[in-house]
C-alpha cells in the first residue's frame, strides 16, 4: 500500500507541472493583466511606449509613457492561419485515411502509413526551413499570382497584391502539412477498426466500395474525426517555429488579403522577447507572459475537449498522435 501512495505522489509531478505553468504565468503577468484590462484581446496595437522617457505610474503600474498592449492582430492571425490549415488539412487527411484504410493492400498499408505519418516526427523548425527555402519562392512566384487571377476575381480576400510570399496563406499551408498526419493517422486507425459487418451489409445491398466507405464506415468514425480535428487544432494554434519562419511576423497589422503578413500568439512571443526586454519597467515582458497565459488556457481547453471527445464520447483509448 505504501508503494502505491509513493507512486501516486511521484505521479503528481504531471499535474504539478501543468498547474505550475499556468500559475507562474498568471502571477508573473499579473501587473500586465491589471494594466491591460480586458481590452487586451480587442486592441490592435502593441506599443512599448517611449523607451527614452522616464517611467510613469498608471493605475499603480509603472509604464513607459504611451505604452499600450493589445493583441487583436495576433488573435486574428492565429485564428485565420489555423482556419486555413484546418480547411486544407481535414479534407486531405480524410481522403488519405480513406484511401489507406480501404484501397491500399494490407501489406502495403503499414509501410505507406508509416512513411506519411513520419511527417509527425519531423521537427517544426525543419518544416520552417523547408517553408522558408522552397515553399515561399514556389508559392509567391507560381501559385499566388495564379490564385489572385482566378479565385481573386470572385473572392476579394484572395485578390492581389500577392506580396512577398511571407504571410497568412503560406503559414496556413505549412501548418496544414504539419497537422494532416494527425488527422490521417487517427482516422485511418478508426476506419480500419470499424466493425466489418456494417460495411459488408452495405456491400450486400449493392453499394459500391466507395459508397460503403463514404456512407457507412466513415460516418461510423465521425467522433474520432471530430476529436482528431480538435487535436490538430490545438497543435496548429500553438505551433511556433514553422509559423515564425514563414508568416512575415507582422506587427500591429490586420491582414487585408490572404497573402498579407501575419503573426500568431506563439510566434510573437519568440519574435518580440528581445525587444520587450528593452522596456525598463518590464511591463512588455509581462505582457508577453499574458499572451503565453492566454495561449496556454486556449490550448488546455482545446486539448481537454479533444480528449473528452476521443476517449469519453468516441471511445478511442489512444490516437496515433500520442
Amino acid at each position: 500500500m505504501k508503494f502505491k501512495v509513493w507512486l501516486g505522489v511521484v505521479a503528481g509531478v504531471l499535474p504539478a507541472a501543468l498547474v505550475a505553468i499556468v500559475l507562474f504565468l498568471a502571477v508573473y503577468s499579473w501587473p500586465a493583466i491589471h494594466f491591460n484590462g480586458p481590452g487586451f484581446v480587442v486592441r490592435d496595437v502593441w506599443n512599448l511606449g517611449n523607451l527614452y522617457a522616464n517611467p510613469v505610474t498608471v493605475h499603480g503600474v509603472q509604464i513607459q509613457p504611451g505604452a499600450s498592449y493589445g493583441i487583436l492582430f495576433l488573435i486574428v492571425g492565429t485564428l485565420l492561419s489555423t482556419l486555413i490549415a484546418l480547411l486544407l488539412a481535414v479534407p486531405v487527411g480524410v481522403g488519405a485515411a480513406i484511401f489507406l484504410a480501404e484501397a491500399v493492400p494490407d501489406h502495403l498499408r503499414m509501410w505507406i502509413s508509416f512513411f506519411v505519418e513520419l511527417l509527425m516526427a519531423i521537427p517544426s523548425v525543419v518544416f520552417g526551413l523547408w517553408g522558408y527555402v522552397v515553399v515561399i519562392p514556389f508559392l509567391s512566384r507560381h501559385l499566388f499570382p495564379f490564385l489572385a487571377l482566378t479565385i481573386g476575381r470572385v473572392i476579394p480576400f484572395f485578390a492581389g497584391p500577392t506580396g512577398s510570399g511571407y504571410g497568412l496563406l503560406t503559414a496556413g499551408v505549412v501548418l496544414a502539412l504539419m497537422i494532416v498526419p494527425i488527422i490521417a493517422a487517427t482516422l485511418r486507425d478508426a476506419l480500419v477498426n470499424q466493425p466489418a459487418s456494417m460495411r459488408e451489409a452495405a456491400l450486400a445491398l449493392g453499394a459500391t466500395r466507395f459508397e460503403a466507405m463514404w456512407r457507412v464506415t466513415l460516418p461510423g468514425a465521425r467522433k474520432t474525426l471530430i476529436g482528431a480535428t480538435f487535436l490538430a487544432l490545438g497543435r496548429a494554434l500553438g505551433e511556433t517555429m514553422a509559423v515564425l519562419m514563414v508568416s512575415g511576423n507582422a506587427l500591429n497589422y490586420l491582414p487585408r488579403n490572404v497573402y498579407d503578413p501575419i503573426s500568431t500568439m506563439a510566434a510573437f512571443i519568440v519574435s518580440q522577447l528581445d525587444s520587450a526586454l528593452q522596456d525598463p519597467t518590464g511591463l512588455a515582458v509581462r505582457s508577453l507572459a499574458e499572451i503565453a497565459l492566454v495561449l496556454s488556457i486556449i490550448s488546455i481547453i482545446v486539448n481537454a475537449a479533444a480528449r473528452l471527445i476521443l476517449v469519453v464520447w468516441g471511445n478511442v483509448q489512444r490516437s496515433m498522435a500520442v
Binding site: L18, I21, L237, G238, T240, L273, L295, S296, N303
Partner: peptide, 21 residues
C-alpha cells in the same frame, strides 16, 4: 487526462514558463 492535456500545451508556452520561472 492531464498528461494528454500537457502534451498539447504549446512548446513555446513551456519555454516562456521556463524563462519566467
Amino acid at each position: 487526462f492531464l498528461a494528454d492535456v500537457l502534451v498539447g500545451v504549446p512548446s513555446i508556452v513551456v519555454g516562456y514558463f521556463g524563462y519566467v520561472a
